[in-house]
Design a protein around this nucleic acid. Structure first.
Lengths: 198, 198
DNA sequence: GTCTATAAATGGATAGAC
DNA sequence: GTCTATCCATTTATAGAC
């Protein structure tokens, strides 16, 4: 994975990654569909035509951002296989997903708002559903071994857990009062123990 | 509140409510910005021009739907004031919000996806923030009286709870295996007691 | 209440100069 | 690597007939 923040060498104008970073920010601010190449151009301080020197289409920008987000999430799932019992794996995935959301907030935010309006969007949604399904299987296992209550359907539990995690895209502000580890701990605490005082 | 489903009297063509119901469905399927009046027209089986006989603009359709969603949510908050302690009020609001989401799924879904791209959208987001703030105040009170744990910041708790509730807009299907009461009970159970087996 | 036709603006994308 | 100028499809919305 290339480092987005490293300043480039020759440094005349933008490179593709620089275009992408700005584009994802504007996509998230106004929504992908509501963002025109003209808005993108003025955010970049370029003409519309100049953007097409770096990318072939608006949709290619979307595709690159979605690939980044999905790879990061899938990486968490892959790493979780090394873990022991199902509850440990679930905790690891939730914590990892929060970290991904915080680290890759722009691209994941874009992913979470997809409507499936094009082939690119539908392919991303399919990959995302596979992720959700894999997490649901971990929950099934944890219910089976008795570490999670089984009176909540595993699919519902998965969606509620990621409802909390994914809500970060709507309200987490980098540099705010809460850091990623604290948020991950809060979410895990609510998910496993609940909010009621003991 | 008028009944959407009641068949109209004269019944030649559409009335405004009929246009709105179809429009909100199409807005949600493709996203408001990605929906053109042309798509709307073909979903209605009308010409674009005919739509303008019923509404003055695409944005008016959005405004009407958002008003419906916000009024329903605010109604839950108003009704909660009759309740006793803070924890009862919070449970009532969460359950009520789930019921609103299920009953008014299309308009609430639209509300939850706003980006603030126009005055209409920003006004709706302001009303929605007021709702979230009022719920946060209930949580503050419940932490103060000792019924909720206070090691999770009240604002974070509120966003996590409504992260679960609002996620319904992304996956709840009317007529599916789970009904509204069951879902409300599941969410309340996870929110208060957590998923870990006891 | 709905139509056809059309206006006026904006959309994504390209050509070719520098 | 960026520009100006432009193409062409699509957009929201209106005019006026039926």
């Amino acid at each position: 994975m290339t480092d987005r923040t490293e300043p480039r060498r020759g440094r005349p104008g933008y490179d593709q990654q620089g275009i992408l970073d700005v584009a994802v920010g504007v996509f998230n601010a106004h929504g992908y569909d509501a963002t025109s190449m003209g808005m993108l151009a003025s955010s970049l301080g370029l003409s519309k035509a100049a953007i097409y020197h770096h990318v072939s289409s608006k949709e290619q920008l979307l595709e690159m951002a979605l690939g980044r987000a999905l790879s990061a999430l899938e990486g968490v799932l892959d790493a979780s296989h090394e873990r022991g019992d199902a509850l440990s794996r679930l905790s690891f995935v939730l914590t990892g997903a929060v970290k991904v959301l915080v680290d890759e907030l722009p691209s994941v935010t874009l992913l979470l708002r997809l409507r499936g309006n094009s082939e690119v969007e539908r392919a991303a949604l399919t990959r995302r559903r596979a992720f959700d399904h894999a997490v649901t299987q971990i929950i099934v296992e944890a219910q089976r071994d008795g570490s999670l209550r089984d009176d909540v359907a595993p699919g519902v539990a998965e969606r509620l857990l990621f409802g909390m995690v994914n809500s970060l895209a709507e309200w987490y502000k980098p540099g705010g009062p809460e850091d990623a580890e604290r948020l991950a701990a809060d979410i895990l605490a609510v998910a496993l123990e609940g909010l009621r005082a003991h």
